[in-house]
């Protein structure tokens, strides 16, 4: 059994609830004990870091301080939480003046942080700690014949963090292959979906989403898989908007990584939140359920 502190992130409770639902049963099957960080708060995400740097770092640091008391690696399934918490940790190590101010602020909440937490993305933990080989050995329903396009998005692999290539990553492809599925080769697998700009600059984001869906479809994908809540929502919940704006006809399910792994491990669809995907994956997954 491997032990981790678990940071679900705000969206896993709401707009990305299929992610929040599918992580625990998959972790259990893979002998991971994800212990939810008690009373975690919003990581701050990129919007806070674009409004006030010190306050944003304090938001992240409260979580780091809570996790430091526990002593395990802090694992999050959200790419934005990952980059925010990891970035705050790096800045606190690199900039002593910032660290002093943050610790003075944390003291007002009876906390302090000494830089002892390793922040990790769940996808990286599945790839590096659990490994595709071990996952493959636990597969009870091979996804043979299912053509899957792995969509990395941005903040899992950039800025360079080392576990995968920032321009041409392979980790998700290897995880998908370990499930028996056919890995679709496509060019835009690590390009941007527009992120949160879908709320403020929808036309721009819909253009980017259209390019991604087109590229995945043209390369034969039956579905996409991503670990990132924001990417999943943009490609799934906005797919009908793309269809009406660009007169397209996409019907591409977008699964969370843990949903796809869960299907191959034989976990029931309900426990994986498959009914909560906007573009229903039930038809393409039918042979495997």
């Amino acid at each position: 059994m491997r032990y981790y502190s678990y940071f679900p992130g705000c969206s896993a409770e709401a707009t990305a609830s299929p992610l929040g639902l599918s992580v625990p049963p998959v972790a259990k099957e893979l002998d991971m004990d994800l212990i939810e960080l008690e009373d975690w708060n919003c990581c701050g995400s990129s919007p806070y870091g674009s409004v006030d740097k010190l306050e944003a770092t304090c938001m992240a640091a409260r979580n780091l301080a809570l996790a430091e008391k526990r002593g395990f690696d802090l694992v999050t399934p959200c790419s934005s939480c990952y980059i925010t918490l990891d970035g705050a940790d790096s800045h606190l190590k690199e900039y002593p003046a910032l660290r002093d101010q943050v610790n003075q602020a944390l003291a007002a909440g009876n906390l302090d942080y000494h830089g002892g937490v390793r922040v990790r993305h769940l996808a990286e933990v599945l790839y590096s700690d659990v490994t595709p080989d071990v996952i493959g050995a636990k597969v009870s329903k091979s996804l043979k014949g299912l053509k899957v396009a792995s969509y990395y998005g941005c903040q899992l692999v950039r800025p360079a963090v080392g576990f995968d290539d920032p321009e041409s990553p392979r980790s998700l492809d290897e995880l998908v292959a370990s499930l028996g599925a056919d890995v679709v080769s496509w060019q835009l697998k690590a390009r941007c979906c527009g992120g949160s700009l879908v709320m403020s600059e929808q036309d721009l984001a819909l253009e980017l989403i259209n390019k991604l869906l087109r590229n995945a479809q043209e390369n034969g994908a039956q579905c996409l898989v991503t670990p990132c809540p924001l990417c999943q929502i943009n490609l799934d919940a906005y797919q009908s908007q793309v269809n009406s704006k660009f007169k397209t006809n996409y019907n591409l399910p977008v699964l969370f990584l843990t949903q796809l792994i869960g299907v191959a491990l034989g976990i029931k669809p309900n426990a994986l939140g498959l009914q909560r995907n906007i573009v229903s994956p039930m038809k393409v997954l039918a042979p495997y359920l």
Binding site: A14, S17, C58, A105, L106, G109, N277
Partner: peptide, 25 residues
């Protein structure tokens, strides 16, 4: 699709968080 809760989720430590952010300010 049960992905848009009608009520916000709140942490217990709102007071501590506010104290931290007030101090930062």
């Amino acid at each position: 699709h049960k992905r848009m809760p009608l009520r916000p989720s709140r942490i217990k430590g709102r007071g501590e968080l506010k104290a931290i952010l007030d101090k930062a300010r």
